[in-house]
Design a protein around this nucleic acid. Structure first.
Lengths: 341, 341
DNA sequence: TTGAAAGCGCTAACAG
DNA sequence: CTGTTAGCGCTTTCAA
């Protein structure tokens, strides 16, 4: 293996220029203490020798890393992909670095990740919690170390910090009502967690719509998916088989949509004639499914961007107080052909 | 803002235990020089006080960061999402951290990102180059600083280093031949770059299939998309309109597939009767498009995982030589209904 | 406007 | 087996 090259240091620059280390340091950070001509000389040499400062030495000294930690359950979901885009857009603009971690919906992994953040590796954290996460000790521990942490999408109500979310309850209510108006008298709600903030709120919206429209709520219309794709699929099939006419489905997350299409195909049920479907989804291909899927589409990029902006603001300004409440960016109900005209 | 808490240091631990700093340091890293009983005492206190070492101090001293840099053009593409998953899986296992950067297909951004890597921020780099990237000065500069860099998917032939790719040429050849066998006598090749390794190789495979099957190659069957979605779409429509019967399309990247469906819908062309379609795609929803899309599906997770494993191996073992050639992991041609039976 | 010196928290010779 | 010491490369008083 190639030997690691002896990297350029400020000390070497100082040597070449006949200046002191501190002067060079100040010149590089464009301090007002330094004369224009010295800055010029320093910067010329920096350019010429292609000097790149060691960020870790700087971090050690200044106690900040210009790095934010992003913790998400998975990447292979359009929502999170777009949210990362939003986060990255502000990171790139503001000169921050993005460390990414996947919890894979697992609480222990999430804990381990946050534990590491107590080291000072990151200046702040953006998190969308795992499905399994019901406690917040790991988050509290981090906050105790004064590491700002902002939730996005999947939040914990019990923790007092900024939360960037969409109008989960209201958009689920709207979608459910839409299904009712289109003639569904039985509506299945597909979920994949009892505890996640987003599924609770979306379920609440679903319930509210039923109530508003004088339909009775029944537990057996709620399907909670496990992680066992096969088992989940069979459950869905069973429900669909036993359902009468005029059934609707509201899928509370993107990945639940495709199994519905699969099940309908296998059972020879046609969408939307036999079953109408609406799903939370940010996937581009929703419009090209057969039939095109009516979706609740979340402002994923915006959510990521807003969360990151807020975090960076908190980090930059000594006096900026992290707003402790929720910021809600509404979703869109996009009507396509999986619901009746 | 909350004041930053005075973090625990090895020095404080040493003080409490009546040991020297170096003993504690060695105990924590489980050095053989330290007695079991001392290790026990140290670890108990570490546990009790919840000590987390400062990674940047350690990095500064050891000159490595346990961090890898990942540079990709975008995240909102199933291939890259899955590749990140693969990368993260080995990072998590091996205790590495993943810094992620998006080039947005832009050469200047990519250059800036790699330039920063010269600082020692990362121990190694995994990159899939931007569409605009045709030079490799930025990569050479990094390699000169002995930072291992491995290409995945989109490589540069001119650079001598490890490259993890799929069998681009062969799978495109296979797909093209499949279209020919199914009766296409004119096949459009949709590309979005003249220069990218993957598009060149896929085009070569396409050409080879034509040659093997005594079809003549025509430049006007090659559609190169710009970034102007509207213009691209009109171009595609125009081509499709002017095409006779028995036309096939091979889309060389995932994001080109949906516009084809859109265009066929708008022009009232039916797939696969009027036009047969095959696309490179890793999207789950391919199977649920209307009609289900025949795809060349790349081993995205595997590619990411292999690239990351190789990088980590290079980093861990002083004597491990980065293999300088290509590792090819084949793609699958998954036949669905966008091609004739 | 510049420089000397101390030190961020950790590791690694080296000595004991 | 444990301790002393000298930095890693940078920033930051403080003094000149």
């Amino acid at each position: 293996m190639k030997e690691k090259i002896n990297n350029l240091t400020i000390k070497m620059l100082a040597g070449q220029l006949g200046l002191s280390v501190s002067t060079v340091s100040k010149a590089i950070s464009d301090s007002h203490e330094i004369s224009a001509s010295t800055k010029q000389r320093v910067n010329d040499l920096v350019q010429k020798l292609n000097y790149v400062p060691n960020p870790y030495a700087s971090s050690l000294r200044t106690r900040n890393s210009k790095t934010i930690g992003v913790v998400i359950p998975e990447v292979a979901d359009s929502f999170f992909a777009q949210a990362i885009n939003g986060i990255e857009s502000v990171a790139q603009e503001k000169g921050y670095h993005v460390l990414i971690y996947l919890s894979h919906e697992n609480f222990e992994k999430e804990k381990k990740i946050l534990k590491d953040f107590e080291s000072g590796r990151v200046d702040g954290v953006l998190i969308s919690v795992a499905k399994e996460t019901t406690q917040h000790c790991h988050i509290d521990a981090l906050m105790d170390k004064a590491v700002p942490i902002i939730f996005f999408d999947r939040v914990m109500d019990e923790v007092t910090t900024a939360k960037i979310i969409t109008n989960d309850c209201e958009s689920a209510r709207l979608a459910t009502e839409y299904l009712i108006k289109k003639g569904c008298n039985r509506i299945l709600f597909l979920s994949f967690s009892h505890t996640l903030s987003i599924t609770c709120k979306r379920l609440a919206g679903y319930k509210k719509a039923l109530l508003d429209n004088h339909l009775k709520y029944a537990d057996n219309n709620i399907l909670t998916f496990s992680n066992d794709a096969k088992k989940d699929y069979l459950l869905l099939q069973k429900k669909l088989k036993s359902a009468s006419k005029d059934v609707g489905i509201l899928a509370s997350v993107e990945k639940l949509a495709l199994p519905i299409y699969q099940a309908c195909e296998d059972l020879q049920l046609s969408i939307p004639e036999d079953v109408q479907v609406i799903s939370f989804s940010n996937s581009d291909s929703a419009a090209f499914l057969h039939p095109p899927l009516t979706t609740i589409t979340q402002p994923a990029f915006e959510i990521g961007k807003t969360a990151a902006s807020l975090l960076v603001k908190t980090l930059e300004r000594k006096n900026f107080e992290l707003p402790m409440e929720e910021i809600v960016i509404p979703s869109d109900l996009i009507i396509r052909k999986s619901t009746l005209p």
